[in-house]
Amino acid sequence: GGANQAAMKEVFEVSEDIFSAMVTVDVLVAELWMAFLLIGVAKRKNIDRAFKADATAVDSLQNKMEAYTASIAKVTSFNDLIFILALAFGATGLAHWMSDGIAPFIAENYPVLSKFSLTSGFFWLVVIATTIGITLSFTKARNLEGAGASKVGSVFIYILVATIGMSMNVMEIFHNPGLFGVGLVWMIIHVGLMFLVAKIIRAPYFFLAVGSKANIGGAASAPVVAAAFHPALAPVGVLLAVLGYALGTYGAYICGLLMQASVGVY
Rank of each mutant, 00 (worst) to 15 (best):
Val191Arg: 05
Thr163Gly: 12
Val170Phe: 15
Met168Tyr: 02
Arg142Pro: 00
Leu144Pro: 01
Asn143Val: 10
Ala198Glu: 03
Val161Tyr: 06
Tyr158Gly: 00
Val191Phe: 09
Glu145Phe: 03
Lys151Met: 13
Gly148Leu: 01
Glu145Trp: 00
Ala162Met: 09
Ala147Glu: 02
Val185Arg: 06
Val161Gln: 07
Lys199Met: 06
Val210Phe: 00
Ala147Met: 01
Lys140Cys: 01
Phe195Thr: 00
Arg202Cys: 11
Gly178Asn: 07
Ala214Lys: 00
Val152Leu: 15
Ser150Cys: 04
Tyr205Thr: 01
Gly153Lys: 06
Lys199Ser: 07
Ile201Arg: 10
Ile189His: 11
Val161Thr: 08
Ala141Asn: 05
Thr163His: 12
Phe180Ile: 12
Gly178Val: 03
Gly165Cys: 08
Leu160Thr: 07
Pro204Ser: 12
Phe195Asn: 04
Val152Arg: 08
Ile188Pro: 00
Ala162Gly: 13
Asn215Arg: 04
Val155Cys: 11
Gly217Ile: 05
Ala147Phe: 00
Ala149Lys: 00
Lys213Trp: 00
Gly146Trp: 09
His175Ser: 15
Asn143Glu: 15
Tyr158Ser: 08
His175Phe: 11
Ile164Tyr: 04
Gly211Glu: 00
His190Ile: 12
Ile189Leu: 15
Val185His: 06
Leu144Ile: 00
Phe207Leu: 12
Asn176Thr: 09
Ala219Tyr: 10
Val197Lys: 06
Lys213Val: 13
Leu196His: 03
Met168Val: 14
Phe180Pro: 01
Gly183Pro: 08
Ala209His: 01
Phe156Trp: 10
Pro204Tyr: 11
Ala198Gly: 05
Ser150Lys: 11
Ala147Gly: 07
Gly192Glu: 12
Phe195Val: 13
Ile159Phe: 14
Val182Pro: 04
Ala203Trp: 05
His190Asp: 05
Ala147Tyr: 01
Phe195Met: 07
Pro177Gln: 04
Gly148Ser: 08
Gly217Asn: 04
Gly218Pro: 08
Met187Ile: 02
Gly218Arg: 06
Thr163Asp: 09
Ile173Tyr: 00
